[in-house]
Each structure stands twice: as structure tokens, then as C-alpha cells.
Amino acid sequence: MLTSRQGAVLGHPIGHSKSPALHNAAYQELGVNFSYRAIDVEVDGLAALMAQVRAEGNWYGLSVTMPLKNAAVDLVDELTDVARTLGAVNTIIATNDDDGATRLRGDNTDVAGIVNALRHSGVGERPRAAILGGGGTAVSAIAALVDLDATEVVVFVRNLPKAAETMEVAVALGAPATLETFDRAAATLGRFDVVISTLPPRAADGLASGFAATGDQADGVLLDVAYDPWPSALAQAWESRGGTVVAGIEMLLYQGVEQVKLFAEAGGYGTLATDKQGDVINVMCDAIGVHRRKPYEQNMAG
């Protein structure tokens, strides 16, 4: 048996995270000797934690959530192409060199998580899309919409100058993206085929009230990446107007599947998680109370 190795999800706040339930269910199903927990850490404490991971030498990887995704870019040894382009890391894979030194590689599975969550809900190609927020998850949403060949991507933000880097990523990806101020969102959301909220929990409550007050119908799909508390005020408003709601826990599920595959391979288990992907998806669904995926997911991106 391979030596026990550890992993964790990092973020602040992190007490609500369902990632430990997801990952531990997967590793039990696979029979791999991995542990996984949640660690509450803010941006100013991330460098010290990365140094600890390097010093201990028995880590296989880390999941990275808000508000750390951008900061993690500068604390790893290498980046995958997607993480470098997006300037955001949600996955850190730890491997040990022959001399025992730990090497950290930053990746981003949020894109596959968003694409697969939207596809599972029935979203097709070439949607008209809106994104709420302009941070680390927003750039992943832009990349996912490029994968779906979106014809329009409007990014609603509170501070236009602060979103400049997000738009630079959009240009690099070839996304048909434009910026709008957040106060214009409520009056226009109903016309989009896809709306992705990348805002923290409760941050869209005011927008939800504004949208409900318009009386507009919602014919498209809302993916709200915040899943606690659930349903969010925005999800309730969207559904009450006839729209389809995808909970953020769906994105968490699919990006987590990709992380498990990366971690298992780096941890010395080869393609085991990929070979048993269907079983992994189902036990992860059970762990967080999501309906099992049957038949086996043939159309997953990743």
C-alpha cells in the first residue's frame, strides 16, 4: 500500500464546504490512501501554508476556493496552460522530486465543472450569456462559455476598472465579452439563455429583489456557484419567473471529479480514478445528496 498522503480545500470562510464529503467518498470508493479536510486560510496566510505543504512532503494536492484563486498563481512552481491563461488556480497538484523536494503545479478544473453542470441542465451551443461578478471564478465562467461557443457574454461588475484583468483574459480567449455596471443587471437578465453568478453567498440578494420587481420572465438557465445557503434569493427569484436553476453544488461536483482524477494520478494511482469515473461520480453524488448520474456520463468535458 502506498504511504498515506493528505489533501485539503483552502478558503475563507470554509466551514460550509462540501468538498471534504465529496473527496473522501471518492477516495473510499477507489480504495486509495488519501485523507482530505478543510483548512480556513485567508490570502495573507496562503504563502505560509504553501511553505508548510512543501516542508511536510506528504501532500498529494489542494483544492483552492474564494478568495485565494488568484493569489495561488504566484505560489506554485508551474501552471497548466488553462491556469496561466485565466490567472486563477483552483487545483494544486503536489508531487515529490527524486531528491524529495515537493513541487506544486497549479491547474483549474472550474472550467470543466461549469461546462458539465450547464450541459447536464440541457444548455446547448451558442447561448447568449451573462456573468455576475468579475473575480477568479468569472474568468473560468468566460472560458466555459467559450467552450460552449457563446454568441454574447456580458459581465456585470460593481467596479469597472477592477475588471480590467478579467477582460484581458476574455480577449485572450477570444470571448465575445463586454462589461456592464452591476446596477444594469436586474433590468436585462431575463433576456439571456445562460446566467452564471460567481458572487459570494448573499451578495446577489439585492439583485434578486430587483429582478423580481421587473416582472420579467426568465426563459434561460441560472447557475449560481454559491450553494450555501440554498436556495439562494437569486435562485428563488429566477425559478419563480419560469427559469431553470442549476445549484452551485453541481459545478462543485464536476470540478471535483476532475480534481480526483488529477490527484489520484499524481499520488501514484495511475488512471484508476479515470477508469472508475462513473462509480466516482455516483458516490460523490450520494455524499452531497445529488441525484446519481445514470447512465455513465459520456459527454463530460475535461
Rank of each mutant, 00 (worst) to 15 (best):
E297R: 07
V194P: 00
T109Q: 06
A266S: 11
A129R: 02
V257N: 03
G268D: 01
M284N: 03
L2K: 15
V64K: 05
N33L: 08
E265Q: 14
G278Q: 04
I288G: 10
A101I: 11
Q236C: 11
G15T: 12
D107M: 09
A273N: 06
G100W: 02
V290Y: 03
T85S: 11
E297N: 06
E165T: 11
A273Y: 00
V41R: 13
G215V: 09
R293I: 05
F34T: 01
T80G: 12
T80S: 14
M300D: 03
A83F: 08
E180K: 00
S19H: 00
G256Q: 05
V82H: 07
T244R: 12
E168M: 05
E78V: 11
F156I: 01
K276A: 11
I249H: 05
S121H: 11
Y60D: 07
R292K: 14
L272Q: 12
V155S: 01
V123D: 02
T80D: 08
M167W: 04
M167E: 02
A213W: 08
I93K: 00
I288Y: 09
T166V: 06
A112R: 02
I249P: 12
L222W: 08
E258F: 02
Q277F: 00
A88F: 09
V195Q: 05
P229I: 15
T181N: 01
T65P: 13
G206R: 14
N116F: 05
T65K: 00
L207D: 02
A172H: 02
D183M: 03
E125D: 13
V280F: 00
K18F: 14
L234Q: 10
N299Q: 07
R241L: 02
L199Y: 05
S35R: 06
G289V: 12
A55H: 13
A94C: 15
D98V: 14
G122M: 10
S63Q: 10
D81H: 10
G215A: 08
A25G: 02
H16V: 13
T198G: 07
A186P: 03
T137P: 08
H120P: 01
D228M: 14
D99K: 15
P161E: 04
R54M: 11
D74N: 14
G270T: 01
M300V: 05
V32R: 01
L199D: 08
V32G: 00
W238Y: 13
I249L: 15
V194W: 10
G248A: 14
I196W: 04
Y60F: 15
M251I: 07
D279K: 08
G87S: 10
L148H: 01
A212F: 12
L222Y: 03
D77M: 03
H23C: 05
L86K: 03
V73Q: 09
G87W: 01
N159E: 09
E56T: 08
Q259H: 15
S4Y: 09
L10C: 11
